[in-house]
Design a protein around this nucleic acid. Structure first.
Lengths: 344, 344
DNA sequence: ATGAAAGCGCTAACAT
DNA sequence: ATGTTAGCGCTTTCAT
């Protein structure tokens, strides 16, 4: 590594952080009075209040939230265990906003698509006594949470349901989305439509592949060689793409079951991107600056995030309420790639 | 909203969460012994240890981290105040990994490019008594942190320096990056090179615009009408683009000063993307699937994140050490758009 | 309107 | 090797 380093003068040593008691002494009042001022209790005399405020700013005092939470018995925080913080993540964004409106802080942790990490993240949230958890499940079994659930932990799954335990969930309407994609391609003259998507051991992979097969059956199109689920590595996507686009009766249009597949397909298509019609499941930033623009089935992340927090808050208020699964509509966004005609 | 809702049977009411004392009673040992087992103290007899473990799993006990932190006086957590959680954020990812390796959890909060929100997020982290903060500064003044800094809070700025207070920083080599971009375009025959970038009130905008002017001066190219800093809205980017690409002596190549500008320029260029050479500052996912592929100056996010955590840990260990600014090299990634020849 | 004291769940001296 | 006890910094009865 060849970083350049510039150094400068040091910084004074560590001073002890002021506590509420320090403030009380500085202001010459009782501890309780400082607590009252900090919590904006109106029953403090104006004179004392201002003296306490002065002491607070003089000392640079900020209350220790851990101690507050410990004493209050609530954390005012919801955990969000999502697959990735680094990728585009509109659901997390929506959760963040909705939680803030509900007066809750968000503790976001990434699961990195790893079952073990997911469990680690969720347990860490439990140890921090979050008031609820929004999870984008990776693992297939979440019964390590059954104790917490019995203890009243509000848990809401987004995108996929939890496994092994009953929990509220917010899902996209996968079947309807695949239907929209298929109809759009059929509408533009395609008869041989292919599908490349996720492993069917994954919930969304299963739902979307099943919906695709149903569409083909309903429209009387050919299924043979057109369905390629269980595809996740770039190499296998490349192979599936070759298989579906070559041979005696190649597909003229393609539906991709998730963003990763969509992007990998675009990467392999390269210059040929304009020669095969394509609809991707799930929108992503920049899909509109591709040429041709990418037609997608977009999930409504804003509504998903909002709903997740709503369910969380509702269960907090009433732990005994019935478990709910909310299905959120999806939307087809035509941008060109899905409207390409078949080669004549 | 037309969500479909499916309801199911309820869930048992809230049971009290077990404490360490409950475990001690269940196992018939003293509180201290449970604490020893939880903290893997080897001085516990094998017999008692297993009895305690059994009680822990039977009760589904998980220690309250807030109480641990309160008592230990350390939180084992670093805060990361970044501009956006929802956007691609490789630095956050790198911080996450490096922190984990150092045995630290990460509390990530987004500042949403808002000075007020930034302050809110940072203060919230302070109230949670994080052991240090990595910040991607938005605000121009951070002297509200001077008290915390004096109290020994390790603070590391990434991408831009903090304002008004001395803190460690990890910056990209903006000047070198602009130099690489300029030379690449010059090498491919361009004489009239334009620049569209951030406001010069922003640190990176200032550094990059200055470096661009220096490049033009050094190479004897024309500066007139070629420099467009202070551009941030889509409308203004569009205007700047028109200005730089039209007139009697239009630019044949362009350098864009940040991702937002790059993407907006691509959006406006549309079908003409292949007719003007372009180098963008900062890489982004999918830049390689554009046609032509986008040539970029890439920041080394992995090194930036790592270095930030290294500086944080170093200052934790020695609060009096000199303040450091580390400059991380950038890299030119040629993908086609920067290698286009000038027309004719 | 203000204060004294108990205790949230845990760790760490200090016994034994 | 195991138990007793005093707090960490705060909120909250309960007095005054």
């Amino acid at each position: 590594m060849t970083e350049r380093v510039a150094a400068s003068s040091g910084r004074s040593g560590r001073r002890k952080r002021p506590t509420m008691l320090d403030v009380a002494r500085e202001a010459g009042v009782a501890l309780r009075t400082v607590s009252r001022v900090v919590n904006e209790d109106p029953t403090v005399g104006a004179h004392l209040a201002s003296r306490v405020q002065a002491a607070i700013t003089a000392l640079g005092y900020a209350p220790d939230e851990r101690a507050q939470q410990l004493r209050r018995g609530t954390s005012g925080t919801v955990g969000a265990a999502v697959r990735n913080l680094a990728d585009a993540h509109p659901v997390l964004s929506a959760v963040d906003h909705a939680a803030r409106e509900a007066g809750l802080a968000v503790l976001a942790m990434s699961t990195e698509d790893d079952e073990h990490r997911e469990r680690e993240a969720v347990m860490s949230m439990c140890r921090r006594r979050v008031d609820g958890i929004v999870i984008e499940p990776i693992g297939t079994s979440h019964d390590y949470l059954s104790g917490e659930l019995a203890a009243g932990l509000p848990l809401v799954a987004v995108d996929r349901p939890t496994g092994g335990v009953e929990a509220d969930a917010v899902l996209s309407d996968n079947a309807a989305g695949i239907g929209m994609a298929y109809r759009q391609l059929a509408l533009h003259g395609h008869r041989r439509i292919g599908y490349i998507g996720d492993d069917e051991r994954i919930f969304t992979g299963r739902e979307r592949a099943a919906a695709f097969r149903a569409c083909v059956a309903a429209s009387g199109g050919p299924l043979d060689g057109m369905t390629h689920p269980g595809v996740f590595s770039p190499a296998r996507i490349s192979a599936a793409l070759t298989a579906v686009l070559t041979g005696p009766a190649p597909a003229t249009a393609l539906i991709t079951g998730n963003v990763e597949t969509t992007i990998e397909v675009l990467r392999h298509l390269g210059a040929d991107a304009g020669r095969v019609a394509l609809v991707g499941f799930d929108d992503f930033p920049l899909a509109d600056i591709l040429r041709p623009g990418l037609t997608v089935v977009a999930q409504n992340s804003a509504v998903i995030g909002r709903t997740a927090i709503d369910l969380l808050v509702a269960r907090s208020a009433d732990p005994a309420r019935p478990v709910q699964t909310v299905t959120v509509p999806v939307e087809l966004i035509p941008r060109g790639s899905g409207e390409l005609p078949p080669p004549d």
